[in-house]
Write a protein that binds this DNA or RNA. Structure first.
Ligand SMILES: [Zn+2]
Ligand SMILES: [Zn+2]
Ligand SMILES: [Zn+2]
Ligand SMILES: [Zn+2]
Lengths: 165, 165
DNA sequence: CTGTTTATGTTATATTATAACAATCTCTGT
DNA sequence: ACAGAGATTGTTATAATATAACATAAACAG
């Protein structure tokens, strides 16, 4: 398996076992929370599972609609609080340019991810190129700025969608 | 004047002539629009001027409030259409992580800017480091992705605010 | 237990953005 | 000047995203 394969999984409509993606993500989540003493309640766990449901960014109110099917009293704060928790332990990322959320591909290591967002199919792949992150941070510091968080989002066309229209 | 001076102007509360910033921005805007055959109407020009009012990102509804003082019938579409126009000719940028807008420091050259956003004072400085932009684009292309637009936003503390709390 | 913290429920509202259609302005060709 | 076409702005309504504020209920430590 080429090293790019994991990164590009979201762009492969067929040929990746997404059930396994989700199971692995939940397992990793348990470990991360245990390590940090954070409490992954059933609600938070379920929201994380829903975020992972597609290999694509999900909007808060879509999560809410789904959750309402199984938990009558879900309201906007229900979802936003769960999302805030998941963000705080870095199990998910927020895609600023889409107002949407996506599961973190590598929650065990701290990082400000870089995201490739396909205009065609909506899929998002998460890179983690330390060279880019470091270069950006260095450039900021060279100007006397103290960086805290990076948001790097690249819109364009994934391999499949570039081939089509 | 050191080369960083222009970039850091937004972080210097004193000692930069902001009136000149605005006048220069409007002059450049006229030129850009003339060159592209775009029509910088009084309304659009005024909204651009308001965006430049502070050297900081401005939210759409704040612009709307201001505009209403001088144009009774301003409504959300008034502002959003003007902003869409200004974005389309790249006279302003949208800061995704703030849902806010900021004047482009260099509208004569096409670029996906990189933004340093101060948590303390709210000021935003625009970099344009081609090395970063190229590296990001190259990395995307190496994965078969065709990049169209980059969003790069760095939150942190500007020199002044890092010195304080 | 009992108070304290954490998590969730509940209602209401704030903030950001767009849809849809009407009116007006601008420009062009005659 | 006039008609028609396209661009711009006005107007009303509503969609989409997010948070405030306070109530209730679990979880947990002493
Ligand atoms: Zn998957
Ligand atoms: Zn991640
Ligand atoms: Zn710019
Ligand atoms: Zn500052």
């Amino acid at each position: 398996m080429a090293p790019n394969d994991a990164v590009l999984a979201p762009f492969r409509k067929q040929g990746h076992d997404h059930g396994k993606c989700v199971r692995d993500a939940l397992t990793a989540a348990e470990q991360v929370c245990a390590r940090e003493g954070a409490s992954l309640t059933p609600l938070r766990r379920r929201v994380l599972e829903l975020v992972w449901g597609a290999h694509a960014p999900v909007r808060a109110y879509d999560l809410l609609d789904t959750l309402r099917g199984e938990r009558r009293r879900a309201a906007p704060p229900t979802i936003y609080r769960a999302l805030d928790f998941l963000l705080s332990v870095r199990l998910i990322h927020r895609i600023e340019s889409l107002n949407a959320f996506v599961g973190c591909a590598d929650p065990k290591h701290s990082h400000g991810g870089q995201f490739l967002i396909c205009d065609g199919c909506g899929a998002v792949a998460e890179l983690d190129d330390p060279t880019i992150a470091r270069r950006v941070a260095d450039r900021a510091r060279a100007l006397g700025f103290t960086p805290r968080r990076q948001t790097i989002e690249i819109s364009g066309r994934c391999p499949d969608c570039a081939a089509d229209g």
